[in-house]
């Protein structure tokens, strides 16, 4: 039995200590956000935050996590009450299939917590571990910028929500 702190709440987990966090989040705690993409640390679909850092949940055994803060996308906000970053992703309609998006948001969250107004280049470099196959990158970049304090989007930029 291990105790994991996930999204601010302690959870008793009965699993082999060598189990990667991803499986425990999804199957034992019923959290959908972190996704299986490769299990190899190559795609970032499983990204969550541990003590404020973006990490690959597919490669972290739960044995190293007691006493540390795990944050998943469920901990940021909800459909009814989304976090600023989640809200920005909706505003920018930054998803196609959306499979990569929870990982994207968590990695971006880790960036914004350390650097509230990153430059375009800093965002791109920071987001590099996370893959998106649908090609939603431009919108993801816009959403992160929208959420960052550094950039305020003028209304003119939301032209796309105006009819034609």
């Amino acid at each position: 039995m291990l105790t994991l702190t996930v999204n601010g709440r302690p959870h008793r987990v009965d699993a082999d200590p060598a189990t990667p966090l991803l499986y425990v989040l999804r199957n034992d705690l019923g959290l959908n956000g972190a996704k299986f993409g490769c299990g190899l640390g190559q795609c970032g679909a499983c990204t969550v935050m541990v003590d404020g850092h973006a990490v690959f949940a597919c490669l972290v055994p739960i044995s190293v996590l007691p006493g540390r803060d795990v944050m998943t996308i469920e901990g940021l906000g909800s459909e009814e009450d989304p976090s600023p970053l989640q809200h920005a992703f909706v505003e920018e309609q930054a998803a196609q299939c959306g499979y990569c998006i929870a990982g994207m948001i968590m990695r971006a969250q880790a960036l914004l917590e350390h650097n509230p107004s990153p430059s375009e280049e800093e965002i791109r470099r920071h987001m590099s571990p996370n893959l998106c196959r649908c090609g939603t990158h431009m919108r993801i970049l816009r959403a992160i910028k929208r959420a960052s304090q550094g950039t305020r989007f003028a209304d003119a930029d939301s032209e796309k929500r105006v009819v034609r």
């Binding site: 959908n32 956000g33 996308i73 469920e74 906000g77 459909e79 909706v90 959306g98 929870a102």
Partner: peptide, 9 residues
């Protein structure tokens, strides 16, 4: 479908 996808639904 996007709200659920960005909140872990």
């Amino acid at each position: 479908d996007i709200p659920a996808k960005v909140t872990g639904g």
